[in-house]
Design a protein around this nucleic acid. Structure first.
Lengths: 146, 146
DNA sequence: GGCATATAGTTAGTTATGCAACTATTTTCA
DNA sequence: TGAAAATAGTTGCATAACTAACTATATGCC
């Protein structure tokens, strides 16, 4: 392997691999142990709908950084489980508004507690200034590439 | 949504979503534009083998943070493409050593150049101290959860 | 008004991931 | 020594990701 190649790129495997995978796996495990039968990908959709209900699928694409087919199928699966419904937009017939059902609303408190606990554990021993730097850097990485 | 819920957890979507997805997509796009028909997941296996050839599948699991079935199938696909071979370990008949072919070796220089260029672009405007903090924090996140 | 273009969403095909269950081999230890 | 436990790898199943191609609706502009 040539010298001096890909030194900064070691960050790639760090960004892409370890931390995000570890957080995702732990959260999924905590959901399972609590008897919750949802994936973290499905939960990420619910998370955005709890912040603002009845978003279009396109808006869910933007907020979760997924493409349209991925959202289509996540919403399909959430609909099968009775957690969301598609409603036609009154102003634009191309648009589906994805809205929470009462069943989804009842999941909010428990799943957010589990997510908080997971993040507390993940961030143990890391001070707030460092967390802010990480957020800023990763935002910059995203902006540099988008 | 309850107040004060999941505030630190905003980091979750940052870690798990934006930056890593952006880096992965950009690198994949750069591979495609260069006419390379490999996925970034396959490339990540090759990357570790360029650092040290003929690793066991278990060792690839450890170094790439994947489970055993994922490695089995990535190696299957790399083998189909003629980029690696499985060799039985001389000392332990349970073990497959995964070794690079000459075809894989010829990909090394170009793909590392593309990876370097991608990381240069990703890290534009971010100073080295901040990069070090990000690496440290994400390592800590991983260690906290593993 | 009507045609070209853009936007929202779906479908099909390939690859990848995680879990559970399985086979084969090696190690442990009573 | 021999049975139990651990380790390496594979297979089946479900979910999810990206690309490309598709339908339906809306917008822009002559």
């Amino acid at each position: 392997m040539p010298n001096n190649q890909f030194k900064r790129g070691e960050l790639y495997s760090v960004i892409n691999g370890m931390a995000s995978i570890a957080v995702a796996r732990r959260l999924q495990k905590n959901f399972r142990q609590a008897g919750l039968d949802i994936t973290i990908e499905q939960w990420s959709i619910l998370y955005h709908l709890w912040k603002e209900d009845c978003l279009s699928q396109q808006e869910l694409c933007n907020r979760t950084f997924r493409d349209k087919p991925s959202i289509t199928r996540l919403v399909d699966n959430l609909e099968k489980q009775g957690l969301v419904n598609r409603h036609p937009s009154p102003t634009d017939r191309r648009i589906n508004l994805v809205c929470l059902t009462p069943a989804a609303q009842s999941l909010q408190e428990l799943t957010l507690q589990l997510a908080n606990a997971t993040m507390e554990e993940a961030l143990t021993g890391i001070n707030k200034e460092e967390v802010e730097i990480v957020k800023k850097v990763l935002q910059q990485v995203y902006d540099n590439l988008k």
